[in-house]
């Protein structure tokens, strides 16, 4: 299925990536090309086939519900672009 500029702009918003008007055109072409190539999968009969949910044949392991880690605030904040009083800081969201 071919994607037009409107759809690409909508996907870009969902993905939170700013895309300029000039880029929309070329992206629409590239993405449509990839999707057209992927269309070959429609030839395959998948009736009654279960989707793969786990690569390895194993059960998801359970562990005891207890805290095993923590108290590393300073180490975690060390990589933050901006922090304030022990918190990550972001642009104001509430007026």
């Amino acid at each position: 299925m071919a994607l037009d500029k409107t759809i690409v702009a909508r996907i870009a918003t969902l993905a939170r990536i700013k895309v300029s008007d000039s880029e929309l055109e070329s992206l629409a072409g590239e993405l449509s090309g990839i999707l057209a190539w992927i269309e070959q999968l429609n030839e395959v009969d998948v009736t009654g086939v279960a989707p793969m949910t786990s690569v390895a044949h194993m059960k998801m392991p359970m562990r005891e519900d207890k805290v095993t880690d923590g108290g590393d605030r300073d180490a975690i904040l060390k990589n933050a672009p901006q922090e304030a009083r022990g918190f990550f800081a972001v642009p104001k969201v509430v007026e």
């Binding site: 939170r16 972001v90 642009p91 969201v93």
Partner: peptide
């Protein structure tokens, strides 16, 4: 998302910051 690590490019709003950073 420009909040916890790595690059941050400022924006007018939180969403604009996300979009600019990821772009």
């Amino acid at each position: 998302d420009g909040v916890r690590f790595g690059l941050r490019v400022p924006g007018e709003s939180l969403d604009a910051m996300y979009e600019n950073t990821r772009a």
